[in-house]
């Protein structure tokens, strides 16, 4: 169980990741804050909740668990998480999306170390995880592969090709997490392309489905991912209901408007205040 103290630490980490996300997308005046903010607790659980076996000092450690950001536009949450975990200096985050920065707009394998796979064209990450898990099985290795999927991303047919194959090959070291924020680029998923009943779809494809009530409750995310580790013979998917733009009121209120743009100076200040950072640029990230 997550202790009270460590839970506070996880909340603090999540809060700092949110700060990075709004600051990065503000500095770049572009990027994807909404779908990054929705995934904060998922990445916090993975990287800081004891789920992912990883070592920031050895990003190429062969026995590490792999995390693949299939919704490859949500780079702000990945870069912020990797920086918080110590893969690189947080100062680098301000170079997001700039020429010659390792922090590319969409994920690029190995840029920086810790980014497992390229993406940005949706629907490709899960297939990659299958290949990874198959290689691990051939080698008799025990590492797992985690994949973060967007629910809008699930429109892409390749996901379902991969879903079929993962069950067929009984790749039980593949765990997918669906960031179920119910919005996609053009608007609400229910209007653009309905994905319900989503859990039934995964079950029909032969996956072990874990539905949680709140994808922003880091304890629930950790518990689901730990349950997944115990499943044998089947891949697992955690469906995590989230809010696009979580933690920033004006993004939560207008999720479709915050898929792919950066906040203005005033909006940044408001977002930082809401996140408890007082809005000062010199704020060091400690709680007010």
């Amino acid at each position: 169980m997550t202790t009270l103290t460590s839970l506070e630490t996880l909340h603090e980490t999540a809060r700092r990741i949110r700060r990075h996300i709004v600051e990065m997308t503000h500095a770049a005046q572009s990027g994807h804050p909404g779908g990054s903010l929705s995934a904060v607790e998922i990445l916090t659980a993975l990287y800081f909740g004891g789920v992912l076996r990883h070592d920031p000092a050895r990003p190429d450690w062969p026995e590490r668990d792999r995390f693949v950001l299939s919704k490859g536009h949500a780079t702000p949450v990945l870069y912020a998480t990797l920086a918080e975990a110590g893969y690189f200096e947080a100062a680098l985050l301000s170079s997001f999306r700039r020429l010659d920065s390792p922090l590319q707009g969409h994920v690029v394998r190995g840029r920086p170390a810790g980014v497992e796979m390229s993406g940005g064209a949706l629907g490709m990450g899960l297939s990659f995880c299958l290949g990874q898990a198959l290689a691990a099985r051939i080698d008799g290795a025990s590492w797992r592969c985690y994949c973060l999927l967007g629910d809008g991303e699930l429109n892409e047919g390749q996901n379902w090709e991969a879903a079929m194959a993962a069950a067929h090959f009984e790749l039980d070291r593949v765990t997918a997490v669906v960031d179920r924020n119910r919005f996609q680029n053009d608007g609400p998923e229910a209007e653009i392309m309905r994905m319900d009943p989503l859990a039934d779809k995964w079950r029909a494809f032969g996956w072990h489905v874990i539905e949680i009530a709140d994808g922003h409750d880091v304890r629930q995310v950790i518990a689901a991912l730990e349950e997944a580790k115990g499943v044998s013979g089947r891949p697992q998917v955690v469906i995590a209901p989230t809010h696009k733009g979580k933690g920033v009121s004006f993004m939560e209120e207008n999720p479709a408007g915050w898929h792919g743009k950066g906040p203005s100076d005033e909006q940044l200040a408001q977002a930082l205040r809401e996140l408890g950072f007082g809005g000062g640029a010199a704020d060091n990230g400690s709680a007010p």
Binding site: F128, C129, L130, G131, I138
Partner: peptide
């Protein structure tokens, strides 16, 4: 037998799985 797999008539997934295997050193 452990070195060959058919993924069905699903070429997008074929490529993704190939990439994953290659990234693991195959």
């Amino acid at each position: 037998p452990d070195r060959w797999y058919t993924v069905g008539a699903a070429e997008a997934n074929l490529i993704g799985m190939a990439a994953g295997l290659a990234a693991a050193g195959k």
